Amino acid sequence: MSPAPDPTTLAAFEAAKGFMPRHEGLALYEAAAAAGRLGLPLLEVGTYCGRSTLLLADAARSAGVSALTVDHHRGSEEQQPGWDYHDPETVDPEIGLMDTLPTFRRTLHRAGLEEHVIALVGRSPQIAALWNSPLALVFIDGGHTDEHAGADYEGWAPHVAPEGLLVIHDVFPEPEDEFTGQAPYRVYLRALESGEFTEVSATGSLRVLRRTAPAER
């Protein structure tokens, strides 16, 4: 039987702001639960309002490790005013810019998972440049331009531990199926072509890959 998140966590996931459907969330949780057995942290790139963070936190709690989540909380390109995925409730009325950090904190608090998550607030490449520890899982779900998705891969994939997992969201092989660009798909192909990762599963737009060869630095 596949591992499942706590019912309270799953209910909080369903209620949280975000764009990950339930079946992909359950696949993410299963991957995080498996990776957690390595005894190393689980890391997410692209927090937004914390919908998927809840699942990583639940898995981290069960494994006795920490979940880390990286985001500048000013929103990706497709979440800015004028775009289909813009949510005006996430705009700071004082400065007129998006700020998803307060919503994220409320999401964690309501689910009782604050103590299991370390929020790294800043731009992914800057934080990755300072990081020097192995990770059991890296979940890439940040910006959808080639520049940002590529930088997330370059910055964080090398830190996936042997037998650890690289998970990529919004992988759309067919151009007509995409909603914000195919950069995550190109990152997915890049990971496979590197020879360092082997695909484990595909659920909707979620791809799970395992590190099967050392990272080339």
Rank of each mutant, 00 (worst) to 15 (best):
G96R: 03
M98W: 00
A161D: 02
E77Y: 14
A191C: 05
G39Q: 07
E196S: 14
V121M: 02
R37C: 08
D84P: 11
D92K: 06
E94W: 12
E94D: 14
Q79H: 15
D6G: 00
V65E: 01
G142K: 11
A128K: 04
S133C: 12
E14R: 15
E174R: 14
A59C: 08
E77A: 15
R51D: 03
A12R: 02
P175D: 10
G25N: 08
L165Y: 14
P5W: 04
H148C: 13
A33E: 07
E30P: 03
P3Q: 04
L165A: 10
G39R: 09
G75Y: 04
F179A: 13
G195L: 08
A213Y: 11
R211Q: 08
L28R: 09
R105W: 09
R210I: 00
A129H: 10
T103M: 12
T203N: 09
P21L: 07
L113T: 08
L42N: 09
V138K: 03
A151V: 06
E163G: 05
R106V: 13
E94V: 13
T100F: 11
E14H: 12
V138H: 04
A183R: 01
G64R: 11
T203A: 14
R74N: 07
E77L: 15
P214G: 10
R106L: 13
L135H: 05
E44N: 03
G164I: 07
V121H: 13
D99H: 13
A149D: 04
L28C: 05
V171T: 03
D58R: 05
G204F: 01
L55N: 08
G18D: 06
G164K: 08
K17V: 14
A12S: 13
L113F: 09
P21Q: 08
C49H: 01
G75F: 04
L120R: 04
L56W: 09
S194Q: 09
S76Q: 10
P125V: 03
T203L: 06
Y153N: 11
S201A: 15
F104E: 13
I140F: 01
F139P: 11
H159Y: 13
P175C: 03
W156K: 06
R74P: 01
